[in-house]
Amino acid sequence: MAKIVLNTIINGENREFLADERDSLLEALRERLGLMGAKEGCNNGNCGACAVIMDGRLVNSCCVMAAEIEGAELNTIEGLADADSLHPLQEAFLENAALQCGICTPGFLMASKALLDENPDPSEEEIRWWLAGNLCRCTGYDKIIRAVQDSAQRINSSS
């Protein structure tokens, strides 16, 4: 199995690493880089548990080949919080009890971040539309939607 050398910026840091040419980005993150925050729920882009932001765009990392990230900039769940504080989305998810088992949470947080980066004041309908690519089986989405609304308010009132 051929190996490839990849250079990327992950959560602001330059990373050079060896991947298998057959690795998906998800496999490379988890098995080659030890970044276990992105989760595999389906491995075919249906559930969004592996969502990361690649060059500013939300992607399902299971549907990106590792080889495609050469030179790219990635943001993963591991980089969402600052050293001294959680991201407002993370705080809002905690305070609104927007997670139960937590397996889908990293994907929801990254998808929500991508949404708020693009649309800082989304309506409920816009949130539901944007997050329709992320499956959650525990919450019925109610508290997740409220957490995103709450987070948008927090971000907007502090800026």
């Binding site: 970044l35 925050g37 969402l80 993370q90 998810f93 905690l94 997670l99 937590g102 949470t105 990293p106």
Partner: peptide
């Protein structure tokens, strides 16, 4: 366990 679950840890 909330913080671990929102930070990917």
């Amino acid at each position: 366990d909330g913080t671990d679950k929102v930070t990917g840890r």
